[in-house]
Design a protein around this nucleic acid. Structure first.
Length: 789
DNA sequence: ACTTTCAATCTTTTT
DNA sequence: GATTGAAAGT
């Protein structure tokens, strides 16, 4: 299913009631007007669904039917004819959630998901709003959305232009800082003076400003802008805001505890119209504080929206009583929560288990063995998940599953669209789609290698900057003049001609065929075919997958939009597999059996969280633990290891403090099945395959382990071979001076060129000049590269 | 212009 | 350990 609406963004502008309106159809679909959909809801859920007017906060504990309430509420609004699908704004935090919501609404009300254009993530809806009012934000509605990678490259350019030492002030951290400001809804001007000074000796604010400026000239936004710009538009253009007030009769927000300040401001502006705002969330599951989420938003709801009603959902239908008891007891250690009492509905079930092991390898073996046992007991592997705190923990499990032959899937690992080959391919497509996508162009000018190195790119950048044109055009110009040596010039000419041809073909060709053609003719696929490294085959496979995934979209534009907002892919494989993911990724999911490895001080709670955020950090970690345990329906199994390899070095660790916070009544301490099998002699039968039986901390063992890791990593296709993004130094004397005299020249004028020296103009053709140089002879140059004498 | 080598740095979670 | 950038070599 495509979550980006393939129909373009201006489709529902006219709220003309459709004949045989969807509401009517929905009503019919809901079963002869009877409120079937309310059946099976408990009283609180029912109330939450039917309380339509005024602000409403639904405090929904884990597993209490939060999504059900949201979707049923939408069905209810439609069925009662209070609003049409296009008049309901429903925002979620993740793509996964919005996808699921769409599904479930559709199954309740019939296939009107098409008619719910305003159901989506904060970011996708922000994009939609921004595209239609782009001109108010100084953008064209075709603006591109930069991902983190592009963002960092852009910031690097700015830093080097400002002559800031990237060693001391890494681009990453500036990106992070800017992101933080944006999360808090701060434009460059609004950054508090003290904070603005925190980066690069007081230049932080100024750099932020420069960054925003660059974005505008690139006709691009980053993730933060997708929220910030609409906020600004709403504030500055009340008529625009009023337009949305008229449109959105009802607003629903999922996972309200995860909203940041910007999102809150955005919502509050929209909710000034009809005040029918319904927020669903659970303060105990707020785990994105590090990304700017403000638990405060949910704690303050009643103050922010006077007259708000609060409904608590406390009946938990997911987990057995022991699991719930353990989780509740743990989370009770947190202060500053609204407080809920989760009530189990089912039986006691099994106790939560805690098992220790010698090291992380043994932990993985123990879990692997238990999974095999479940497998023999016909437990579906789809119902088994391993939730880790940090992604590096996954590797050990992948390793283990590989040798055991246990099928597994990784969620949120190295993501499809972040892989090098995919990003390269996308860059090509972006260039075809829009010739002014400079970052994309820069990425692929010399991929595959065509002899266009740093020097060439710098020249192009110079031309582009001074003439204020996109790089692609600069390249086209450079091909016609003599700024560059003949060889790169020819290459450049060929390349730009290719792109012209492709862009032209794009108008008539099917976009999937186009993609294949582009990748083929550019030599990109050939590059990987030539590549002898072991993962080249996997990369080619990924490229095929990319083209295949484009099939689900109307056109190239729609696909690219999808990609920039949805960084995950639907892993629509039907095979039964164990799921491996981080705790963060697990929110909102549930499994019969949940393994929770790595409960050690420093890892979980994570040291950094403690260092940087103190008690608040600890509480967030604890909420993370709570989220982890409450994912389990029948069994929750916690592990800790005494030794773990961190940064490649073995470190001993002590069990997590969270273990002590679990209640004895619901927890039993067990011995991991493989415990102490590592004493060197008595290998368990499952270790046969392990050629390294003796001790686990000898250098030899570690080396062997490494070798195996690199080996298996390849077959998983996540190897990143050294990526070299041409560090492009822009700016410099040359550019600064040449920008000044962009005026047109006249025949016979005397000019100076940095490379060719003095000369006289013999011909003028637009911004291209022919100059008879005193020493270098006659050359064609670009006007911005010379100056009057 | 490209490749290799070496040293330095930093290790969470992600729309 | 892994990734990254810069310097030296081809």
């Amino acid at each position: 299913m495509a979550e980006t609406n393939p129909v373009p963004f201006f489709d529902d502008d006219l709220p003309a009631p459709k004949p045989g309106g969807i509401a009517a159809r929905a009503l019919a679909a809901s079963g002869r007007g009877a409120k079937d959909y309310l059946a099976g809801l408990n009283p609180e859920q029912c109330e939450a669904v039917q309380t339509l007017d005024g602000p409403l906060l639904v405090l929904a504990g884990a597993g209490t039917g939060k999504t059900r309430v949201l979707t049923t509420r939408i069905a209810h609004i439609l069925a009662t004819g209070r609003a049409r699908p296009s008049e309901i704004l429903a925002v979620t935090f993740t793509n996964k959630a919005s996808r699921e919501m769409k599904h479930r609404v559709a199954s309740l009300v019939g296939d009107v998901a098409e008619g719910m254009p305003w159901l989506g993530t904060f970011h996708s809806i922000g994009t939609k709003i921004l595209r239609r009012h782009a001109e108010l934000a100084d953008l064209k509605s075709s603006f591109t959305i930069l991902d983190t990678d592009d963002q960092i490259r852009l910031i690097k350019q700015i830093l080097s232009a400002e002559n800031i030492d990237e060693k001391r002030w890494p681009a990453r951290s500036l990106a992070w800082t800017i992101d933080g400001w944006k999360n808090r809804g701060l434009s460059p001007k609004e950054v508090p003076a003290g904070e603005g000074a925190s980066f690069a000796n007081g230049k932080g604010k100024q750099l932020y400003e420069a960054y925003q400026e660059r974005l505008k000239t690139l006709n691009a936004t980053d993730f933060g802008d997708l929220l910030l710009e609409p906020i600004r538009i709403f504030r500055e253009s009340p008529d625009v805001l009023a337009q949305y007030h008229r449109r959105f009769k009802f607003m629903l927000v999922d996972e309200y505890q995860d909203t940041n300040v910007a999102q809150y401001l955005w919502l509050r502006l929209l909710a000034q119209g009809p005040r029918n705002l319904c927020c669903v969330g659970d303060d105990d599951q707020s785990i994105y504080g590090w990304r700017g989420a403000e638990v405060d938003n949910i704690l303050r709801f009643e103050k922010d929206f006077p007259g708000a009603k609060v409904i608590r959902l406390e009946r938990n239908y997911r987990s057995d009583a022991h699991i719930l008891g353990a989780a509740s007891h743990l989370i009770a250690h947190n202060q500053g929560r609204l407080g809920k009492t989760l009530r189990p509905q089912g039986e006691d079930g099994e106790m939560v288990t805690v098992a220790g092991s010698w090291d992380s390898g043994e932990e993985a073996r123990a879990i692997g063995e238990e999974i095999e046992q479940f497998q023999r007991q016909d437990v579906s592997l789809d119902e088994v998940a391993i939730l880790v705190r940090a992604s590096f923990q996954m590797r050990e499990f992948e390793d283990r599953f590989m040798t055991l032959g246990v099928p597994y899937r990784v969620i949120g690992g190295p993501r499809f669209y972040e892989r090098q080959e995919i990003r390269d391919a996308l860059a090509y497509l972006r260039c075809v789609n829009s010739a002014s996508d400079d970052l994309a162009f820069e990425r692929i000018v010399n991929t595959p290698k065509r002899g266009l190195g740093d020097a060439t790119v710098q020249t192009l950048n110079g031309i582009a900057r001074s003439a204020r044109i996109p790089l692609m055009e600069a390249a086209r110009m450079a091909a016609d003049t003599e700024e560059l040596k003949p060889k790169p010039r020819q290459t450049l000419r060929d390349l730009t001609q290719c792109f012209q041809r492709w862009s032209h073909a794009a108008e008539t060709m099917k976009h999937t065929d186009l993609a294949e053609m582009v990748l083929d003719e550019s030599g990109y696929t050939e590059m990987w075919r030539q590549d002898r490294s072991p993962d080249a085959a996997g990369r080619l496979e990924n490229l095929k997958e990319l083209v295949r995934s484009m099939d689900g979209f109307e056109n190239l534009q729609g696909f690219l939009e999808h990609v920039s907002l949805v960084m995950d892919t639907d892993t629509g494989d039907a095979d039964e597999k164990v799921t491996l993911m981080t705790l963060h990724a697990a929110k909102g999911l549930e499994y019969d059996v949940v393994f929770l490895p790595g409960w050690e001080e420093g890892l979980f709670p994570h040291q950094r969280s403690l260092d940087e955020n103190g008690r608040a950090g600890l509480e967030e970690e604890r909420r993370l633990a709570y989220v982890g345990i409450t994912r389990a329906k029948k069994r929750a199994k916690i592990y800790f290891a005494s030794n773990r390899r961190i940064h490649g070095m073995w470190q001993s660790s002590i069990p997590s403090r969270f273990l002590d916070e679990l209640p004895d009544t619901h927890v039993e301490v067990v011995e991991a099945p493989a415990a102490f099998s590592n004493r060197g002699f008595g290998e368990s039968r499952f270790d046969r395959i392990e050629p390294f039986g003796s001790t686990y901390n000898t250098p030899g063992w570690q080396r062997a382990q490494q070798r195996r890791e690199t080996f298996t990593a390849n077959s998983f296709g996540n190897g990143y071979s050294g990526r070299r993004g041409g560090p492009t130094v822009i700016e410099g004397e040359l550019v600064a001076k040449s920008t000044a005299n962009a005026a047109s020249y006249e025949l016979g004028e005397r000019v100076f060129h940095d490379k060719f020296g003095y000369g006289d103009i013999t011909e003028v053709e637009g911004n291209k000049l022919t100059v008879q140089f005193d020493k270098a002879g006659q050359k064609r140059v670009i006007d911005s590269f010379v100056k009057r004498v």
